[in-house]
Amino acid sequence: MKIKRKIEIAVISDVHLGTYGCHAKHLLTYLNSIEPKKLVLNGDIIDIWQFSKRYFPKSHMKVIKKIMSMASNGVEVIYITGNHDEMLRKFSNTTIGNISIVDKVVLELDGKKAWFFHGDVFDVSIQNAKFLAKLGGYGYDLLTVLNRCVNWYLEKCGKERYSLSKKIKNGVKGAVKYINDFESVISDIAIENEYDYVICGHIHQPKIEYRENKHGKTMYLNSGDWVENFTALEYQFKRWKIYNFNKDKLAPFIIDEEVENIELKDLIAAITIVDHVKEKAKI
């Protein structure tokens, strides 16, 4: 029997099911490794912009089935709409069983307010030129297909994977400025509204960072994506961490910094999980 990591909240975004760039098998492996109380799907889960009946592999369908199964087994699933799945916004504020569809949500986490939304509402390029944004989406999809071929060759040669899109984005001053502006605007609004955490996706840049201005401070978090970074956000023991599939694999949630006021039963449960994993590794 596989041991699953128990966490309070898992946040994934920018999965882009239905596109060639989506790594559904990686995501499925991750979802099978956790047992969250809440699963927040923070936008662009299904890529309706580029959806085609000709391409929707079984692995992509398995992700949807897995999420439905988690909901039926008591996990609260919050689906926050994004720009690539914006058609679902007509169903906003709809709840079916344990699944709710919203445009944004505020949750109270251990006495602190967390503001969740996808982030496209702050993207001027999408709001003012949706056609160009969609065209860019197709170009990005073609780039990820090319990247897969490159990485297949690199892995065969025993070399590290390489992200073409990340290299391009990080090398273009305009893209870097856009990302910085995106993070600053969102953080400033969160501070203005006295949110302790602001959690988004959209720009495919996983990050946890304290942001501060003269009015206060907040923690900015981005869940990244499952196209090139393979990351998620996890909340447990009153703190956040970025889960990275390439680095963490199925490692247990180990406390790596001082944590105050942890319930004894929670700590025992975490230690038990770690011990079980270690014993299994010896077999």
Rank of each mutant, 00 (worst) to 15 (best):
A281N: 15
A114F: 13
K241A: 08
V75F: 07
Y235I: 04
E35N: 08
I254Y: 15
S72H: 06
D47W: 07
H276A: 13
V75R: 03
F182Y: 03
Y162S: 10
R239K: 11
R211C: 02
E108Q: 14
R54K: 13
F51S: 10
F245Q: 02
D196F: 02
T29K: 09
V124D: 09
K177W: 13
K207H: 02
F237Y: 10
T144G: 00
I34L: 13
V227G: 02
I262T: 03
A270R: 11
K25R: 15
N222T: 03
G119H: 02
A10D: 12
I203T: 07
K65Q: 12
K2D: 09
K37R: 04
R211M: 11
G74L: 06
A129S: 12
V105D: 05
D44Q: 06
Y79K: 08
V106C: 04
M219G: 09
E108V: 04
M219P: 11
N244K: 07
D110K: 04
L88F: 09
T95E: 08
Y235H: 01
K173T: 10
I3N: 01
I255D: 00
N213Y: 06
E257K: 14
P252F: 00
S69N: 14
D181V: 01
T218V: 06
Y235P: 07
A269P: 01
I9M: 08
D181S: 07
Y243P: 00
E228P: 00
D196A: 06
H276R: 15
K280H: 12
C22P: 01
G74R: 10
Y220H: 02
A269E: 05
L142M: 06
T29Y: 00
K62G: 09
I283F: 14
R89H: 11
E257G: 05
P57E: 07
G111T: 10
K278L: 13
G136T: 00
A24V: 05
Y210P: 12
Q205L: 01
Y20D: 08
P252W: 04
E108N: 14
L233Y: 01
P57S: 07
V11S: 08
A10C: 14
I99C: 06
K65H: 15
